[in-house]
């Protein structure tokens, strides 16, 4: 090779895209050509600087680098609006063809049953919107699907996703929630707090020490990490001030609507990984079908970290009562681990 290397060839070389069979003549030329060696060095700096500039575009909450995630771990969906989670769950439901209804089951994240305890805002937020009402749908329907799905040289079949299949017709949708009196909410929280707190490994400053990222790999490991319920849990519950009969009945009926479950059961339900909010101590865990809800107490209601595994894909969403600051919620979403 006598002529100088082209710029494209130099970048191809730096990017490792030159087939090995074509490398010897290029290397031979570089050995004898100081100009091209200098150009390669300059191009190397260009590549590094350009990469650095592109990476500078990432906000702090940008998605993590792509990685192959074990099926038990799955994809972290934190930091995204709950509606998108629902949209994904709905999309996958459409793809399955045989939805949960067909199986006679309850879809894990399209839960429309009233909240047994707590602020109704959470429940309203969890009510699934039809996909036709989701944010992307409005714009998407305006588009000509065939235009956008024609990615140049890649053959693209015509697309006409039937978004109306999205489930929103389950009984007890938005508005069906029953709001518990504040006193009942507080009391229920109090009644369950001691029980759950006894089951969680918590350090002296209140952190759930066994729930750090990656700390729990399997139900077995989780079971080993979590101490058994203490013998005095029932005693502690018994010491809690007893409500009036009417209120007690009300609380009891609400508690019957969901199952308060143990940490081990939650991990088991989720296939080995339970996500929590770093630095916060939950007050209880609930199960609704295949969905697990981690409940955190707030002054104005409850913070609910709902999660389920849908066809191997973990779906997580975090909802807060009305009036909870959106930026605080965003920060908490980033702390879901």
């Amino acid at each position: 090779m006598t002529s100088h290397l082209e710029d494209g060839t130099i970048h191809e070389l730096l990017d490792g895209e030159i087939p090995s069979a074509e490398l010897p003549p290029i290397q031979a030329h570089l050995t004898s050509c100081a100009d091209c060696r200098a150009r390669v060095d300059a191009a190397r700096l260009h590549v590094a600087e350009a990469d650095e500039l592109i990476e500078a575009l990432d906000a702090l909450d940008a998605p993590a680098p792509p990685q192959i995630v074990p099926s038990a771990g799955g994809v972290r969906l934190q930091g995204r609006p709950w509606m998108r989670q629902l949209a994904w769950a709905a999309s996958i439901t459409v793809a399955v063809g045989a939805g949960y209804y067909a199986r006679g089951g309850v879809p894990p994240l399209v839960d429309t049953a009233p909240t047994p305890v707590g602020d109704t805002t959470s429940e309203t937020a969890l009510t699934p919107a039809p996909l036709s009402q989701l944010p992307v749908g409005d714009d998407a329907r305006e588009r000509k699907a065939s235009d956008a799905t024609r990615p140049g040289p890649v053959p693209v079949p015509a697309v006409a996703p039937s978004r109306e299949v999205a489930r929103s017709d389950a009984p007890g949708a938005a508005g069906a929630s029953t709001k518990a009196p504040a006193s009942a909410t507080a009391e229920t929280r109090q009644r369950t707090e001691g029980d759950f707190a006894d089951r969680l490994p918590i350090d002296r400053i209140g952190n759930v020490v066994a729930l750090q990222p990656g700390a729990i790999a399997s139900p077995t490991e989780a079971a080993a990490l979590a101490p058994a319920p203490s013998a005095n849990a029932a005693d502690r519950l018994a010491r809690i001030a007893r409500p009036g009969t009417a209120m007690r009945d009300q609380v009891a009926s609400k508690q019957a609507a969901v199952d308060t479950i143990s940490f081990q059961d939650a991990v088991r339900l989720l296939g080995g990984r339970l996500r929590l909010i770093e630095g916060l101590v939950p007050v209880r865990l609930e199960a609704r079908g295949r969905e697990v809800r981690v409940i955190y107490p707030l002054a104005q209601g409850e913070l609910v970290l709902a999660q389920a595994v849908v066809d191997g894909v973990p779906i997580v969403r975090l909802t807060a009562p009305e009036g909870f600051p959106a930026d605080s919620l965003a920060v908490l979403r980033r702390k879901v681990q």
């Binding site: 949209a87 994904w88 999309s91 996958i92 459409v94 793809a95 992307v136 998407a140 699907a145 956008a148 799905t149 693209v156 079949p157 015509a158 697309v159 006409a160 996703p161 039937s162 978004r163």
Partner: peptide
């Protein structure tokens, strides 16, 4: 994009 991938 993923919704379209689901459909096709």
């Amino acid at each position: 994009v993923f919704a379209r991938a689901v459909a096709a």
